[in-house]
Amino acid sequence: MGQVRRPPGARRAALLSAALLSAALLLTLAACTGEDDDRAADAPSASFTANGVAVTLRVTAWDGRHGTLTADFVPQEPGFHLYSVDLPPEGIDGIGRPTSVAVLGSLRAHGKLTADAPVRRIPSPGTEETLPVYPDGPVTTTLPLTADGPGPASVSVGYALCNATEGCMLPVDDHRVPLTVTEQGISFTGN
């Protein structure tokens, strides 16, 4: 038997097809891992750790007047959960505190705070109530922002971290992170 002959240009078409497939695969991987322009290293950010949780705040998609405030809440030990953003401010029967992110000063929210984790309900000790919590581990929240103009502003963060067997850490209420809004953009000015 002789060698199989390909039509002219078939090798070039096969190489082009392989290159396009590789590019599509790389774009898909970037999308799945969250590697997009919104999480670029130059996005304004600040972080702090308090009562067992590392919090990173980031402003993305800023167009000079609107953007998104993203807050990553990462428990520092396994087996701990945060409460839902929809929990009442004083908890249920005084138990729990909502995960909260609010803005003050020259920024305001123009939408509801949302979280990327599903809510599950756990029994409230000593009552027949259930508490809305996120699964153990990290939670990311997002809040749409609008600037009223240049000037000082701050982000107020609150949460409570709990473990089903070890109990809860002291809640964090109104942890303020200052920032400044200018005509050029937003910059965090401290923790």
Rank of each mutant, 00 (worst) to 15 (best):
I186K: 03
P144R: 06
G52A: 15
G137K: 12
L20F: 14
V157D: 09
I122H: 04
A13W: 07
V133S: 04
G151C: 13
Y83G: 10
S17E: 10
F48A: 12
P125M: 15
G94E: 13
D63N: 15
G34T: 08
P178V: 01
G167C: 07
P144M: 08
L20A: 14
N163P: 07
L69H: 11
V119T: 12
S154E: 12
T182L: 04
S84L: 03
T180A: 06
L179K: 09
G9W: 01
L26A: 13
G151Y: 09
D42E: 08
T189E: 03
L170W: 10
C168R: 02
L107R: 12
R176K: 12
R121I: 01
V155W: 05
D63C: 06
D116W: 02
A61V: 08
G167K: 12
A153G: 09
G151V: 13
G9N: 02
S17I: 06
L20G: 14
V53G: 14
H110Y: 01
T56N: 04
D116H: 08
P7C: 01
E129L: 12
F48V: 15
T130H: 08
A164G: 10
M1Q: 15
A115T: 03
A147V: 11
E129T: 15
G79P: 10
D42L: 01
V119A: 00
A18L: 13
D72P: 02
Q184W: 00
R65I: 04
G64T: 03
A14Q: 13
D148R: 13
E35N: 07
G126Q: 09
P75W: 11
I95L: 11
V139T: 09
L113W: 02
A46K: 14
A23M: 06
A109F: 00
A46H: 11
L57T: 01
V181S: 02
A46R: 12
T127A: 10
D136N: 14
L107S: 10
G96F: 03
P138A: 15
A71H: 05
G79R: 14
G137V: 02
Y83N: 14
